[in-house]
């Protein structure tokens, strides 16, 4: 899976903003307000990746977090992105993490 649009992510002083850019991105009228971990996940999704690869990246970056904590945050955030229509190239296996 990967992001449907290119995003500019910026630290606004603790919280992060993510705004899509490019002519196509204007179909998405909003912006995302993110914490540091979600901003990190968004960075990972700029290239085609998998939830497992992102999980491993987060595990390495936040060694004090448990697998359950990372998985919970990751699944919740990926669901949010998918709900907003911001993900593409989702495989059938990856689709299973989304709540119908």
């Amino acid at each position: 899976m990967k992001l449907r649009y290119q995003f500019v992510v910026m630290d606004m002083g603790g919280d992060y903003s993510a705004v899509p850019v490019g002519e196509d991105a204007k179909k998405f009228h909003g912006m995302l307000k993110l914490n540091e971990t979600s901003a990190d996940i968004l960075e990972q999704l700029k290239e085609d990746t998998t939830p497992m690869k992102i999980h491993l990246h987060l595990k390495e970056k936040y060694p004090d977090s448990t697998d359950e904590e990372i998985a919970e945050h990751l699944v919740k955030f990926l669901n949010k992105l998918n709900h907003e229509g911001l993900l593409e190239h989702i495989t059938d296996a990856e689709r299973r993490i989304f709540i119908l």
Binding site: V8, M10, V19, V21, G22
Partner: peptide
């Protein structure tokens, strides 16, 4: 703006 550099500058 549409471009990445311009959006970054705006933010």
């Amino acid at each position: 703006p549409t471009g990445e550099a311009e959006m970054r500058k705006t933010l």
